[in-house]
């Protein structure tokens, strides 16, 4: 195989007429060869490849990858940070909503309390007024009753006086002697029940 390759090296040449000057090997004009198998260029390729790979490795490993990795992890961090912040804001919003609800409920309760208190106060005043009015009414009623009773009593005695006087006069006019006690007795008997 190696001898074959070396033979290829010595025979190599493409159709060199089109690149007349630049072919550094194989001056033969008809023979073709695979440039890949031209062993005389291997040292050159391998040397420069190693140089380039070392430079490239240094660039990639020391500069590029740490930077991209840092950017990616930064972004990951920023994203999780943002998500956490969003979660926090959501929590805060929920808290605010709860606080608002609570404030609303409190206000409602307060209003209810105030309404109830006012109502109670009004009720009390009303009760007092009603009681006062009731008392006045009953006092007036009692007074009226008393006066009625007085009137009725005075009417009773007046009627009795009148009846006695009339009876005594009648008895006198009929020529009898007036027994005042008997007349009173008779009048009282007659009057019993009539004036009740």
């Amino acid at each position: 195989m190696i001898s074959l390759l070396q033979e290829a090296v010595t025979v190599t040449a493409d159709h060199t007429e089109s690149l007349a000057s630049s072919v550094a090997y194989g001056e033969t004009e008809t023979a073709t060869g695979l440039p890949q198998l031209d062993l005389s260029t291997f040292g050159n390729q391998i040397f420069w490849l190693v140089v380039a790979m070392v430079v490239l490795y240094w660039v990639v490993a020391k500069i590029a990858l740490p930077r991209i990795g840092a950017v990616l992890s930064d972004r990951q961090g920023a994203m999780t940070g943002d998500l956490m912040a969003a979660e926090e804001f959501k929590l805060k919003a929920k808290e605010a909503e709860a606080a608002y609800d609570k404030a609303l409920a409190d206000a409602r309760a307060e209003a209810g309390k105030i309404v109830a208190a006012n109502r109670a106060e009004i009720q009390k005043e009303l009760d007092a007024a009603i009681a006062h009015a009731d008392a006045e009414i009953s006092a007036r009623t009692a007074e009226s009753e008393k006066r009625i009773r007085e009137i009725r009593g005075s009417a009773d005695t007046d009627a009795r006086e009148v009846a006695r006087d009339v009876t005594a006069e009648l008895v006198r006019s009929f020529g009898g002697t007036v027994d005042q006690a008997a007349v009173d007795q008779a009048v009282d008997n007659r009057m019993k029940g009539a004036l009740q």
Partner: peptide, 22 residues
């Protein structure tokens, strides 16, 4: 088709040594 694969010196002609810029 194989001409494009030829290794040649970058400056001037001459043999391709291991250090030649190609």
């Amino acid at each position: 088709p194989m001409e494009q694969f030829i290794v040649r010196p970058l400056f001037g002609d001459g043999p391709v040594h291991w250090y030649t810029p190609s």
